[in-house]
């Protein structure tokens, strides 16, 4: 056990000092009807193919943001041996429910249908999302509409990592971002709020989930992750919850124990990195 910890430490230091493998990256449009709003960027290290893949979905309250938010994490995972893809999707009024969900589903479909070209294994694609992106990733995995995708239908992801993700939109119905995403308040759109809440869509035989949340998240309370974990387990699914002590939505414990870091995500924490690695190794085996 001690030698394993030492080995991981050496790996971590090696990466920190810039010893990682060189990566290639390329940009694709997964739905040409919407142009640059539906681009994705694929990162890959040199080596044998195909490999398991991770599709990363950015946050931004469904009204802003871009795939560049998760480039650092995508590069880090690609260096570990995964083919990774950061995606853009329509945001704001253009991305109002269900458009953004459909975009994520179509991006997944694109990756799966171009698996051979992209060097990935279509049966081992994991979705990873942060904040609104975590909500979208969770909903893609738990609900099953068949959107009109340029590449045709795809299949479900093999697993989901949802970080700082709203899982119950009904509980966040007071938030203006949620109301904008749902095109109206809950009083007028009640059934659609339920339909768009991953926790209300959970049923048996869903992919494994790793839920990561800060217990001091003021934007999306940790109760979302706790409730989602309980719903998944109650339906007989596999779910794990990593709660980061003192973690917020964009303000999180930094390198030191007595400073906080602004614009850092819970997924930037060492704890999340270790949990994600172990989880990904297990679900893509």
């Amino acid at each position: 056990m001690r030698s394993r910890a030492l080995w991981l430490s050496v790996l971590s230091l090696g990466w920190a000092s810039g010893c990682g493998p060189s990566l290639t990256h390329e940009t694709h449009v997964y739905d040409s009807r919407f142009g640059a709003k539906t681009e994705l960027e694929v990162f890959r290290a040199e080596g044998a193919l195909p490999r398991p893949a991770v599709m990363l979905v950015h946050g931004g309250g469904w009204r802003e943001g871009s795939r560049s938010q998760l480039t650092g994490l995508a590069r880090r995972l690609a260096a570990q041996g995964y083919v990774t893809a950061t995606i853009d999707y329509r945001v704001g009024s253009q991305g109002a429910y269900p458009a953004a969900v459909h975009d994520c589903r179509c991006a997944l479909s694109y990756l799966q249908n171009h698996a051979e070209t992209l060097g990935l294994d279509a049966t081992r694609v994991v979705l990873l999302g942060y904040s609104a992106g975590g909500h979208l990733a969770s909903l893609v995995a738990t609900s099953s509409p068949v959107p009109d995708c340029a590449e045709g239908p795809g299949s479900r992801p093999v697993a989901v990592i949802a970080a700082a993700a709203p899982q119950n939109l009904t509980a966040l119905s007071w938030a203006s971002d949620v109301q904008q995403f749902m095109s109206g308040p809950i009083e007028a759109q009640g059934a659609r709020y339920t339909e768009a809440s991953p926790v209300a869509q959970v049923h048996p035989n869903q992919p494994p989930f790793l839920l990561i949340h800060g217990d001091a998240d003021a934007y999306v309370p940790a109760s979302h992750a706790i409730e989602m974990r309980e719903a998944l387990l109650a339906a007989g699914n596999d779910a794990q919850l990593l709660l980061l002590r003192g973690g917020g939505h964009v303000i999180n414990p930094a390198v030191s124990a007595d400073q906080l870091s602004y614009e850092s995500y819970v997924t930037d924490s060492d704890e999340a990195w270790l949990a994600m690695n172990k989880f990904l190794a297990g679900v893509t085996r």
């Binding site: 056990m1 430490s9 230091l13 390198v255 030191s256 060492d270 704890e271 270790l274 949990a275």
Partner: peptide
């Protein structure tokens, strides 16, 4: 100006190890 190192260890509730890491930073 500050330089830091943090040793992190993560395990499952049953005590089985998830991993450990050592990282550095500065501010």
């Amino acid at each position: 100006a500050r330089a830091e190192a943090v040793w992190v260890r993560l395990e499952h509730l049953d005590g089985s190890p998830v991993g450990a890491s050592l990282r550095g930073g500065g501010s």
